[in-house]
Design a protein around this nucleic acid. Sequence first.
DNA 1: TAGCTTTATGTAACCGGTTACATTTATGGC
DNA 2: GCCATAAATGTAACCGGTTACATAAAGCTA
Lengths: 341, 341
Amino acid sequence: MVRLMCGGRDWMKKKSTLRDVARQSGVSVATVSRVLNDSQSVTEKTRVRVSAAIEDLGFVPSAAARSLNSGRTRTIGALVPTLDHSIFARYLNALEDRLSELGYGLIVSVTNGSGDIEVKKAHNLLDMGVEGVIVSGRSHAEGLNRLLRRFDVPMIITSYFDPLADYPTIGYNNAAIAESALRYLRDLNHRHVAVLHGPLEGNDRIEARLDGLKRAQGDVTLEFVETELSVKGGAEGILQAKIDRQSTTAVLCLSDVQALGALFELQRQKISVPQDVSLMGFDNLEWSSISNPGITSIALPAAKMGLKAAEAMASWLTTNFPAEPLDLKAEIVSRGSTRKI
Amino acid sequence: MVRLMCGGRDWMKKKSTLRDVARQSGVSVATVSRVLNDSQSVTEKTRVRVSAAIEDLGFVPSAAARSLNSGRTRTIGALVPTLDHSIFARYLNALEDRLSELGYGLIVSVTNGSGDIEVKKAHNLLDMGVEGVIVSGRSHAEGLNRLLRRFDVPMIITSYFDPLADYPTIGYNNAAIAESALRYLRDLNHRHVAVLHGPLEGNDRIEARLDGLKRAQGDVTLEFVETELSVKGGAEGILQAKIDRQSTTAVLCLSDVQALGALFELQRQKISVPQDVSLMGFDNLEWSSISNPGITSIALPAAKMGLKAAEAMASWLTTNFPAEPLDLKAEIVSRGSTRKI
DNA sequence: TAGCTTTATGTAACCGGTTACATTTATGGC
DNA sequence: GCCATAAATGTAACCGGTTACATAAAGCTA
């Protein structure tokens, strides 16, 4: 095998180029380029001839050469904290689909909720030439802001709504949503609510939700328990909250991931849901509608957010006008895990 | 704002180039390139001067120009069927981390289990210049094979082990693992087992698992129920399997996602787990260790598979020798959802 | 100091497409 | 057939880095 003798990347140079196609079809490189990019100014006869050469040679245009010349990659980068538990799956699916319709590709990078990793991953994306960056949450390391300024690339924030933020936000008002959740429980006559939430560190969505709860507290006693954003964290949160059937009548988890763990732990302790304690989650993940009982949850507009973010970014890149903030609405899905007392 | 008057992408041309850096630091473009790529043949004095100009100008190298010249992107593409339920999250995290250590970037694309989407996404990845492609499962549309040959890019298959496959497989033997699961239940004296599995269509991992079960059947009666690969699908599978406490003593779900739904449905029907029916899953997803009872599950070597695939691909690209097939072992994690009868 | 060797740096071509401007060909009208 | 115009196509420069080979500078030894 001669190929195995070459070592390294020599075989990479064997691929045909636009010049090969031009030579074989007897036209200039400009005509080949026109056939590839613009069918208006080439005759059908010539187009057929060029297309046959492309097919015959297995010609594949170089994206690097193309973007070097056009100054565009038509690629957008998205940074998300995690791929776990489908939290971002619906949003990413919608984002990618809509961007694709608008002629853009999407590259996703995972930050594990770390500011340092986020800067590093953003740098990678920008190195690759992404034309825009879409992030989750409002607060980001100063390093990220500096990077975006340096690369002069637009950024859109999702999962958050704040018309006054430094970058346009396309998402939802976390504080208001948390308030409506508390109102929902209050209307069911709950006056002692344990709130299970993930790590506060660098997570402005959780912070805003807690602010909203504290603001709407009124005559409701709230107990806050910070725990891991995982199923396990939910179970541990129940242990920490010391649910004893006597005072706390409801548990509000700021994520359905934790709500699943909380449900399991309550069942383990023979604490009946919703007889003894009502349980509510956030994000309406799939299991919340299948669980026993179904978990009352806040359905966040993930797919719509992805779609709108895609459109906003494409528009920004085309018109050079920044995106407008957009407040998407969430809604409460009632299920068997909550009851009136 | 003059910038807002430019429209389109004019501001893209204002960024500094390697030539600007060379001019400002009074050296040639070759020296600037050497400072960027190789610190051995440049004096410290020159290096400092060039670095200052880079910082001053906010110079950012063009990845397109660099890859056009070097013939490399140092980027690998991975195709996965879904981002849902963390099924692939551990594998992708490990893959990306190890590739990064080896000097490669990773781009992930989701295929939604569709052959057509897979070909389209692969085309996008190859257009972007990825140097290798890593896929899940052995069977793929012929269009994908053609694409890879056309681009002359190496491919590695994961989540499957078959030393005779057309491309190297780095994963696990699905048939053997399913056999061991059945053996485990059989050793607990289960002789009637309902098997819940996702859609067979184009999913060779499930197919292999079923083959393994049929081969290992012996004196065990198996009932196969095809259902959606989702929590909901698991619940519906229980309804379809008509678990009645009389004959079927165990339910084997070929995914923990379905096992979660099955657990909920069994509880809804007041069928006690494991008293009335034992329940077993596949993949040892997080909730299986937290649920009530914990779900006995097969722990697949996702992280190790990601790590080994990364190393195999990097090695292949460096040495031009194809990767060797690798059979990673799974292990059964016993929990409260199964019992001896 | 001169000559030789090693180190540091520069020049110009190149990578593979795109496209402004130039040139050729085709078409329609008189 | 000739002329004007439109359509089709070609030429050469360019994008922004990389690097082979050439040249200059530095270091060492006799």
